[in-house]
Each structure stands twice: as C-alpha cells, then as structure tokens.
Amino acid sequence: MADGFKTRKKALSRHGHWIERWKEGWAIYKKNLLGRIGLALLSIFTLMALASFIPPLIDPMYGPMSGVDPAITASTGPSARHWLGTDFMGRDLFSQLLAGARVAFTVGITSAFVSIVLGTLIGMVAGYLGGWTDVFLMRAADLIMVMPTLLVVLILAALFGQLNIWSIILIIALFRWPGVSRVIRAQTLTLKERPFIDAARVAGASHVRIIFRHIMPNVLPLSFLYMTFRVTAAINIEAALAFLGFGDPGTVSWGMMLQWVWKTGHMFKAPYWLLPPGICISLITLAFYLLGRAMDEVLDPRLRKEGERY
C-alpha cells in the first residue's frame, strides 16, 4: 500500500519534468504571433481531416472519390447542395477538399516521421562513431541529398507504373533524411565533447547506451523541430506528383484535385474548383512552417546555433 503510493508519486514527479518543460515551452510559444496563426490554421485543417468522414455518411453521393450526384453531369458552381460545387463528373468538391486534408496529414506526418527517425539515427551514429562510419554515412547522405526527390519519384513512377500513396510516402521519407542527419550529426559532435559523455564512458556505458541514453534525449527536440519543416516538404512533393499525374489514383489529394481541374480543361473556367485546393496546399505548408519557426524560438538559444536549416 505504502509502496504503491511511493511508486505513483515517483511516476508523477518523473513526468512532472516533461510537463514542466512543455509548460515552459508553451509560455514562450504563446508569445509568438506567427506561431499562434500557424497553430490556428493547423487546427482548422485537423478539423477538416476529421470531418472528412462525415459527408459520405450523410449521402453516398458525397463520397469524395466515387460518389456522384445523379442530377449533375458537368462541373457546377457552389450551391446549397454542393457547397463548393462539383467536378466534371458531378462529385462533391467540398468532400474532396476534406478528404484531401486527411491525405495531406497522412503523407506529411508519416513521411516526415520516418525521415526524421532515419535521419536522427544515422546522424547520431555518424557523429558519435566518427571515422570511416562517419565518412561512409555522410557521403551517402550527400549523394542522396543532391538527387532531386521529385525527379527520382517521377522516374520510379515511370518505371513501376502508378505508385500507391504508401510507396510515395516511403520514397519521400527515404530521400529526405540526409538534411536531418547532417544537423543531428553536427549536434552530436558537440555533445560528444561534453564531459557528461566522458562521465558515461567512465561509468562503463556501452556505445549503444551512450547513443540512446545520453545523446538521443539531447537531440530529440531538434529532430522534432526539423520534422515540422519536413512535413511541409513532403506535402509539397506529393502535391506536385499528383498534379503531374503520378499520384495514387485511389486517393483524393489536393494535388489530385488540381490535376483534374487541369486535365479536364477547367483551369480558367472553374475558379471554385481550382482555388480551394490551391489555397489549402499553400496554407497547410505555411502552417507547418510557422509552427516550425515558433518551435525554433522555443528551443533557442541552445540549439539554433548548430547546423544548417535544411
């Protein structure tokens, strides 16, 4: 009984450290106007993504991909029935826009997360071990970094035919870790010189333990910062791919919507169709960027001085 109480109290104070840090971080973040705008925009997009499940429940014709309004055979402007109008097949643009938000989040966050995990691991290992490991990993990073991601995906798409959304996510992730790994490596190099790493060695800690227990917690905030920038990049790449016709034909992304506008020759005829996805792509990119900038300020001044931005 007493023991249980003791343990619980400990757990509380253990997390108390993180809660306190979040509170402190939030206090700084709150002061940043752009950060607040970014967060507001993101909440709107999150709501959109969550709401994307609702329209098809109301009426199958609101299904973003396959729902067709039987009364409509061509693209129409906004109406009470279709708030943003319909596309050339009579599909509801508003539900497509909502579904697009969901795809943007999936693509952005998943591929950013994977590339951050890769980049952080590789950066830490290269920086900590140094020597040939470092040379090899960093040259590999350079090699991948100079390859234009978009072009590579295009070539792959041309080779393998249509890519599904998860392959796209994976490819983006695999091509976007080098930037992160360089930053994390730089941070690791400075951390490695700090006496607490020597202290850990004297305590007998193995390399694996030093990397994960001593270096990782110190670079993770930086990784998360870079993740916000990576999200932006991933969303943009997916949009570009979809627009060029190499997107996953089974999903409705904003880039896909733009491609349909263009392909069906509605580019200059249907602003109600062209503008919403265009604006959404710009705004979600902006939102993640603003979030990143504001987080940068939260982490400042400890981390900003190291490394390059991208």
Partner: peptide
C-alpha cells in the same frame, strides 16, 4: 575494471547529463 576506477569531473554543470534525473 571500470567499476574499480572512477572519476569526478571538474565542472558539475557539464558532467551531468541535463536530461537525466
């Protein structure tokens, strides 16, 4: 042998990992 030979470092501000309790 590490458990038999230990070290106390100069700068306690630097020799403790800021992330460890």
């Amino acid at each position: 042998l590490r458990s038999r030979v230990q070290m106390i470092f100069q700068d306690p501000y630097q020799s403790l990992n800021p992330q460890l309790s």
